[in-house]
Amino acid sequence: MNGSVNECLTDRTAENQAVETPPADPLSEVMIESTPILCCKDLCKSYKKNKPVLKDFNFTVEAGKITGLLGPNGCGKSTLLKLVSGILVPDGGDILLCGQKRSEKSNALISFLPDSPYFSGGQRVSSMLSYFADFYPDFDMTLAKNMLADLGIDPKARFRTLSKGTKEKVQLVLVMSRRAKLYMLDEPLGGVDPAARDYILKTIIGNYSPDSAVVITTHLISDVEAALDDFAFMNYGGQILLSGSADEVREREGKSLDTLFREVFAC
């Protein structure tokens, strides 16, 4: 009897030891970089007097993270992305990119997919590619051509002749074919069919690199939520209502981000 008790004890200590030795953290190698890719401090922007879109807005995006910026229509998501990309100028506050204050030089770090196309309709897709290649040294022409082929888009087609969804796909191909530090995608899935949505998501995931970051705004939360590291719920007036790790919130709340969004922003 004594023997068996002893055996139990030794067994248990062996187990305890096994538990106590911390397992090698696989993420630790990925997360060495400490300066956030994007840091917004007390950002303010208003289009009309006394009607701020963003007020004292703080937002940080770490390297190696895919972040979903989620919020109701008109809450300031696109405004934020336009401020970061330099299309708009903030009324106050700071934007830091890789630790540096935003300047023209930062444009080289950012690959931005705006919510509406900026190419002239007469341009051919192939000339749009060379345009991007001229503009950005980090543009990968082979990758872009492969992606167009995957999506079945004819490079000789004129931009004007393409459907809404195809136009969006072309622009996404351009944006994702760069080797940038920060990708900002404003509604990349909006007008795109479900099969292409999967392809786009896979592209974003496949493009993942531990030293770059992706910010996605979208209303199609259930489509993107598995691809996200972090999320932020943004409310009118540019407040962050809730933010954190997407999977932790699923664990804590016992519901998907999509369900949570519908609850938080219920009309």
Partner: peptide, 13 residues
């Protein structure tokens, strides 16, 4: 699986 690489890394762990 169309999931975040960091999530996949965690699962591998």
């Amino acid at each position: 699986h169309s999931v975040n690489p960091n999530t996949m890394q965690k699962v591998m762990g």
